[in-house]
C-alpha cells in the first residue's frame, strides 16, 4: 500500500520527537507521567483549586447565603486604608518577631544547658518539652486563669504572697502588658521546639572542632561564637523560618486570651480574619485579610530558602 509522502514526513517527525523525549527523559518517560499523575491530581485538587478559589473569593463581595459579586481589588484597597486593619498588621509583626526573637534566645539557652553535663538531663529534657506537647487550647485557657486580674494566680502571688505589688495588674487589659502577655504565652509554648532542634544540631558538631578551638586558647564565648553558631546556622534558619510561619498564623493563643482586645491592642491577622468571616460574615473580605500579607511572607520564605541553599553549596 502506498503511503503519501506528507504522511510519511509527519510520522517521521513524531517518531523523531518521541526519540528526543525518550533520550531526554529516559526510556520509561510515559510510565513516569502515569506515576506522577495521582500526586499532580491531588496537589491540583487539594491545594491548587482551593488556593485559586480563595484568590477569586477575596476579590468578591461575598455575604453568607448569597452568591459572590466580583469587585476586583476593592477589598484590598479598602483594607489598605483601614486603621483597624493597619493596627492588626503592625500587631502581627510585633507578635511574630517578638515571639520568635525570644524563642530563639531561650532555645539556644535551653540547648546549651541540656548539652552540658547536668544531672538528670533526660528528665529535664522531658520537662522542658511539656509546653510543646500540651495542647495549645489547654495552655491558653490555663494562662487565661493565671493572668486573670481578680482571680488569677499571678496577681495572687505578686500581691498576697510575695507582696511585690500593692494591687493586682490587669495583665491582659493594660496597654503595656496585654501584648507582652500573649507574646509570653507564645514563647512559653514554642521555645522547646527551638531548644530540641538546636540540641540535635549541636550533637552533630564534631567534638574535634571544640577541642581544636580550646587548644588555640578559645574560651567558652569564642567557642560558642565561632564553632557552635556556624554549626547551627542552617538549623537556626529552618527553625526560625518555620516558627515565623507558625507564629504569624497563630490564632488560638490570642483568640482565647484576648480575642484581639482590648480595643484592638492584640488584634493579629488570623483573629481579624476570623472576626471578619464569622463576626462581620463578609467572607470575601475575610479571605482578603488572610491573603493580604501572603506575598510579603512568600518573599521572606523564598529569600531564606535561597540563603539556605547557598549555604549548603558552600
Amino acid at each position: 500500500m502506498a503511503v503519501p509522502a506528507a504522511e510519511l514526513g509527519t510520522r517521521a517527525g513524531l517518531n523523531g520527537r518521541a526519540v528526543g523525549l525518550r533520550r531526554l527523559l529516559g526510556p520509561d518517560y510515559r510510565m513516569g507521567y502515569l506515576f506522577v499523575a495521582p500526586i499532580a491530581f491531588f496537589v491540583l485538587s487539594l491545594v491548587g483549586y482551593p488556593f485559586c478559589y480563595a484568590i477569586y473569593l477575596s476579590m468578591t463581595h461575598k455575604l453568607v447565603g448569597l452568591p459572590p459579586v466580583f469587585v476586583g481589588f476593592e477589598n484590598y484597597i479598602r483594607l489598605t486604608g483601614d486603621g483597624f486593619f493597619q493596627r492588626a498588621v503592625v500587631n502581627s509583626f510585633v507578635f511574630t518577631f517578638g515571639s520568635v526573637g525570644c524563642k530563639l534566645v531561650l532555645g539556644v539557652v535551653m540547648a546549651l544547658v541540656l548539652s552540658s553535663h547536668i544531672r538528670w538531663r533526660s528528665f529535664w529534657t522531658g520537662v522542658l518539652l511539656i509546653p510543646w506537647v500540651a495542647p495549645t487550647v489547654v495552655s491558653a485557657l490555663n494562662f487565661l486563669w493565671i493572668f486573670d486580674g481578680s482571680l488569677g494566680v499571678l496577681n495572687y502571688l505578686l500581691v498576697r504572697v510575695l507582696h511585690v505589688l500593692p494591687q493586682g495588674v490587669g495583665w491582659l487589659s493594660e496597654p503595656g502588658t496585654a501584648m507582652a502577655s500573649v507574646v509570653a504565652v507564645n514563647v512559653w509554648r514554642g521555645f522547646p521546639f527551638f531548644g530540641i532542634s538546636f540540641l540535635a544540631g549541636m550533637k552533630a558538631i564534631p567534638a574535634e572542632l571544640y577541642e581544636a578551638a580550646a587548644v588555640d586558647g578559645a574560651g567558652a564565648l569564642p567557642r560558642f561564637r565561632h564553632v557552635t553558631v556556624p554549626g547551627l546556622k542552617n538549623i537556626m534558619i529552618i527553625v526560625v523560618l518555620l516558627s515565623t510561619i507558625w507564629t504569624f498564623n497563630d490564632f488560638q493563643i490570642v483568640y482565647i486570651l484576648t480575642k484581639g482586645g482590648p480595643g484592638g491592642t492584640t488584634m493579629v491577622m488570623p483573629v481579624l480574619t476570623y472576626e471578619t468571616a464569622f463576626g462581620a460574615q463578609r467572607l470575601g473580605e475575610a479571605i482578603a485579610v488572610a491573603l493580604y500579607l501572603l506575598p510579603a511572607l512568600a518573599v521572606t520564605i523564598m529569600v531564606l530558602a535561597r540563603y539556605m541553599r547557598k549555604g549548603r553549596k558552600r
Partner: peptide, 21 residues
C-alpha cells in the same frame, strides 16, 4: 472597677460576683 476588667469575657463578671468580689 476591678483590675483587669478590660480583659473580661462574658463569664468573668459571673465568676467575680459569685466569688464575692
Amino acid at each position: 472597677q476591678p483590675p483587669g476588667v478590660m480583659s473580661w469575657t462574658d463569664p468573668s463578671n459571673n465568676e467575680a460576683y459569685m466569688a464575692g468580689k
